[in-house]
Design a binder for these strands. Structure first.
Length: 497
RNA sequence: UCCCCUGUAGCUCAAUUGGUAGAGCGAGCGGCUGUUAACCGCUAGGUCGUAGGUUCGAGUCCUACCGGGGGAGCCA
């Protein structure tokens, strides 16, 4: 606290807790004595002897208008340094504002410049910046309206996720981030290893500087050439691509569970909808079939949408006004309708019967392409929908096999503009059928010994799904690039900040 | 990873058939103003992504590489 006294030029910021701008604007009483801290968005001077300062502290979209008369002690000395981006601690009295754009404003009695921001070099301007540019200054972009709003909505969604499951008696389970089970089969995995030593390892530096050594040596070699028995974990380890299989362990012991954490995919996919590191929510429910799973997914999405609209009304209005004009309409449409449920077979029938030239013609047994999913949810039904009972040949081993011998109890939730937002299934809980499926998929049953044990001992029907947090945020905010709804995006060739 | 487009002042963009750079915003200075995307005037600021090549001459054409965007596959 003492250090802070010095840094703030004697004003004890920490001990006299600042009010948040959001609270002041909403319920601040004129006449109240308050102090606030935040960052300057703009300053407008009047030569008649006072300045207007727009102060933002991140608590909400709106700024607090601060009026500073020239006779405020010390103000004349620092006014020229109160530039966009500088940080202030201000004491004053709340007053009704004569201006039309705010209910109250702060008449300053003391002002303390905590940190300057050189106007010539500070990258953020009052005008709009492109998201591509802001991505290059990810350390400053949360100071913009858009990224502040995204951070608040993201926070709201996270709270909503926990609330949704906690109020329904789900147990939050922490599944491992480092995994040695190769059994997930969902895409490329990042290897976790100490075989190359640390960055400070002298031998590494020496090797890297050897001119004769060509760059495509160790790192490009096939995994099989490495001696993982001597690695940290004694076998090949990776970053998780899903917590599902582990969640099934707890779901078949303790009742409904959910996991919520980072997930990693080493796919070299460069699109506005993919990240190498993203956050995923995965509920897993015992004594539940696919119908129950679909209902849970629908209730879940509706709850998140509803909570965001209620708790982040200003931010959501901003997205609707400035980012994507259809956001509120889309979200209200989600709340107002039952999700349309159709089988994969029906979906294929619809697609093949419509008079349109598809880039990828579909026949039963093929994966639905993005263009087909978009057509179904955006044009044919014009609302969120669920496609279920997919061909068993295009789905993973763990999905419950239907009696028809051709399909599995899988489901995808499709929403307008984003496409697939949830993927889930009823799990195959019959030991004999699971073994058949493992063989069909060319997997080694020995590797799945513990997963198979869950079916040998007290097996129960169960189901679950996965929702990508960032895809949900795309839906909520209308943002177009997934790199802009996560604070620090990781994509191929990009892991800055 | 594949296809298409793109890379010019701090930011967003312009520069006719190849003739050696311009605007708006931002910044600095001045003016005006209970202002609020404020407004008005003046000033500064660019080895035109990098490396080669064609040409008397290249921001403009060609090649490679590196960024960025859009679409696709895979998926969440």
């Amino acid at each position: 606290m003492r250090d802070n006294d010095v840094a703030s030029g004697g004003l004890n910021v920490m001990s006299s807790q600042s009010a948040r701008v959001a609270a002041l604007l909403l319920e601040g009483e004129p006449g109240a004595s308050v102090n606030v801290s935040g960052w300057v968005r703009t300053r407008r001077d009047s030569k008649q002897g006072f300045s207007f300062i727009e102060l933002n502290d991140g608590s909400c979209m709106a700024n607090l208008q601060v009026v500073v008369d020239a006779d405020v002690p010390g103000f004349a000395d620092i006014v020229s340094d109160i530039t966009t981006g500088s940080s202030l601690h201000i004491t004053g009295e709340l007053k009704e504002s004569p201006g039309a754009k705010q209910r109250v404003e702060l008449q300053a009695t003391a002002i303390d410049l905590l940190g300057t921001a050189d106007a010539e070099s500070y990258p953020l301007q009052k005008k709009r910046h492109s998201f591509e540019f802001l991505r290059e200054i990810a350390h400053l972009r949360p100071r913009t309206n858009t990224f502040g709003a995204i951070a608040r909505v993201r926070n709201c969604v996270c709270r909503s996720i926990h609330d949704f499951f906690q109020t329904r008696g789900f147990l939050n389970v922490q599944t491992p981030i480092i995994t040695t089970s190769d059994c997930e089969g969902a895409g490329e995995m990042f290897t976790v290893t100490t075989l190359f030593g640390g960055l400070n390892d002298k031998s590494q530096e020496t090797r890297a500087s050897e001119p004769a050594r060509n760059s495509s040596s160790a790192l490009d070699s096939p995994l099989s050439t490495f001696d993982f028995q001597n690695d940290f974990f004694g076998k090949h380890a990776s970053l998780t691509v899903s917590g599902q299989l582990e969640a099934e362990i707890y779901a078949t012991s303790l009742g409904p569970v959910y996991t919520f954490g980072p997930t990693f995919r080493a796919e070299n996919s460069n699109t506005a909808r993919h990240l190498a590191e993203f956050w995923m929510v995965e509920p897993e429910v015992p004594f539940c079939d696919l119908d129950g799973d679909m209902q849970l997914a629908e209730d879940f999405i509706k709850t998140i949408v509803s909570d965001s609209l209620h708790h982040c009304a200003d931010d959501m209005k901003f997205f609707n006004d400035r980012i994507e004009k259809t956001v509120l309409e889309t979200l209200n449409n989600i709340l107002d309708h039952e999700f349309k449920r159709i089988s994969y077979t029906e979906a294929v029938d619809i697609i093949t019967s419509v008079d349109r030239k598809w880039e990828y013609p579909v026949k039963w047994g093929d994966n639905l392409q993005a263009e087909h999913e978009r057509y179904l949810t955006e044009e044919h039904f014009k609302q969120p929908m669920i496609v279920f009972d997919y061909p068993r040949s295009i789905k993973p081993f763990y999905m419950y096999c239907n009696d028809d011998g051709k399909t599995v109890r899988a489901m995808d939730v499709l929403v307008p503009r984003v496409g697939e937002i949830i993927g889930g299934s009823q799990r195959e809980h019959r030991a004999d059928v699971l073994d058949i499926r493992l063989e069909e998929c060319g997997l080694d049953p020995e590797e799945y010994w513990w997963y198979r044990d869950l079916r040998r001992y007290g097996t129960v029907p169960h189901a679950g799904f996965g929702l990508g947090l960032e895809r949900m945020l795309l839906l909520l905010t209308g943002m177009q690039n997934i790199r802009d709804v996560i604070p620090f995006p990781r994509t191929p060739k990009h892991a800055d900040f």
